[in-house]
Write a protein that binds this DNA or RNA. Structure first.
Length: 452
DNA sequence: GCATGATCATGC
DNA sequence: GCATGATCATGC
């Protein structure tokens, strides 16, 4: 079977530059304007309908289930993917970009460099469109049509991610793969319904079908880069894994006290009291966030740096806050759709200071952390409990840290007068969710043990 | 020493 | 001017 094209095409499907030129004409336009497509199926009914419209109505590719590239002679793979605009105006990926299904039986014999993934993702015609809720897909505006492939400088991380997943299959643990195992790549589940399972080579346990995909956070950073010049960075740093790269950044500062670091970065002056968030400022500086050269990998991997000061006992001096929540939103939105769940699913870089015998806090460790999936239900309990409080007209009542193993609720405003409206009309002091100190203590101990 | 309420400093 | 990422302060 081969790809078939409609006759009398306005471009040459065997010529890459002709395809790209024609694709470019779609930018800033909609399928309604550029094709005679009557209607595209409702994307809620069937995902990918817009993509099918682009493929069939615009490029004239006859519907098929062929495994090869969409433009075999030009070697191009057509991928259509939604973006949305953030409040800041920046384009962000609405979803992960799925590349190709993972075949558990054959992937174990592949090597990364010559893998199906690398092959499928090396030459992509990427067409992005602005997703707008309630809009007919025919009226989605195409934002970008460009040739794109996995960037060379990201390969070390992709390779690490790929091996993490493939090694699980090789160990007969395909059923234990999780999307959160990896940084840029994601082995995402892909099946028509949740009961579908596939055979794996080294275990009798059936595993969920999964596909290679690029995480949404990675794609968001990639879009930014497509519109900007490359970020300059030392060549030596490129080949390193992310953790190693971060370690190297922090290495020169390990063992220094908060005050020493503060004066080194110019935050501490004689006769001026030290800023409350000194450690956090120092972390930013070491990561280079202020130099306009944000560690690009951080954004791509969606990692959030957090500074934690551990007391002599090993317990964090403070709990860890999240952004404040809106009481009205809390009541309206289920946990599944909440910002809170988004924060919980983030990967974090913990920058750890320890209290010494002299009472000074010294920079001592960095580690990555992500909340274990098993703890999510406990956090959900906290969310639902606070939701019930607000529903019953008592937003002022918080969930105490003694009531939940993982998190609690506490004020988070400028002061007691800094309030947020409630659904029942009475403003209540702004609050947010916090990770409990006890919970953090255990998790940090686990994370550090795992990295040693 | 811990839990909880209150507040601060900075950057965008 | 406010969100953010934290720390401080107080009472038990």
């Amino acid at each position: 079977m081969s790809i078939e094209f409609r006759e009398d095409l306005p471009y040459d499907p065997s010529d890459k530059s002709s395809i790209l030129e024609y694709a470019n004409e779609l930018v800033g336009h909609t399928l309604r304007e550029k094709t005679d497509a009557g209607s595209v199926e409702d994307p809620k009914v069937r995902r990918g309908a817009f993509g099918d419209g682009v493929e069939y109505s615009y490029f004239g590719i006859e519907p098929n289930s062929v495994q090869g590239p969409d433009f075999p002679e030009a070697g191009l793979e057509l991928k259509t993917t939604p973006v949305k605009k953030a409040k800041s105006g920046k384009l962000t990926a609405k979803e992960r970009l799925v590349i190709t299904m993972i075949d558990y039986m054959t992937v174990v014999d592949e090597e990364f460099e010559t893998s199906t993934l690398v092959d499928k993702a090396k030459d992509i015609l990427l067409v992005t469109y602005l997703y707008e809720k309630d809009k007919d897909p025919l009226d989605y505006v195409v934002e970008l049509a460009t040739e794109w492939g996995l960037p060379e400088e990201d390969m070390p991380v992709f390779k690490e991610d790929w091996e993490t997943v493939v090694n699980k299959v090789r160990a007969g643990k395909a059923h234990e793969i999780s999307g959160s195992d990896t940084l840029y790549l994601e082995a995402c589940t892909k099946a028509s319904n949740s009961s579908v399972r596939r055979q794996q080579p080294f275990s009798d346990i059936p595993a969920k079908p999964r596909a290679w995909a690029l995480k949404a956070s990675y794609m968001t950073a990639a879009y930014e880069k497509m519109g900007m010049q490359d970020i300059k960075r030392g060549e030596g740093e490129r080949a390193l894994g992310l953790l190693e790269l971060v370690r190297r950044r922090f290495e020169p500062y390990l063992g220094l006290t908060e005050e020493e670091l503060g004066s080194r970065f110019g935050y501490v002056h004689e006769g001026k009291h030290k800023p409350k968030n000194l450690c956090a400022l120092v972390t930013r500086r070491i990561l280079g966030v202020d130099e306009g050269a944000k560690i690009a990998e951080f954004e791509k991997a969606g990692i959030k740096p957090k500074t934690i000061r551990l007391k002599k006992s090993g317990r964090p001096k403070e709990a860890m806050s999240f952004p404040k929540f809106d009481y009205r939103e809390l009541v309206e939105r289920d946990f599944e759709d909440s910002d809170f769940l988004g924060y919980l699913e983030q990967k974090y870089l913990f920058v750890i200071y320890r209290e010494g015998g002299d009472g000074a806090y010294r920079l001592s460790d960095v580690c990555f952390w992500q909340m274990p999936d098993d703890d999510i239900p406990e956090a959900r309990r906290c969310y639902d409990q606070m939701r019930d409080n607000v529903r019953s007209g008592h937003a002022e009542v918080s969930v105490k840290s003694s009531e939940n193993r993982c998190c609690h609720v506490r004020p988070h405003g400028r002061n007691a007068k800094d309030t947020c409206p409630t659904p029942y009309g009475v403003p209540v002091v702004k609050k947010c969710f916090w990770f409990n100190q006890g919970y953090l203590r255990e998790e940090i101990a686990k994370a550090l043990a795992a990295e040693k």
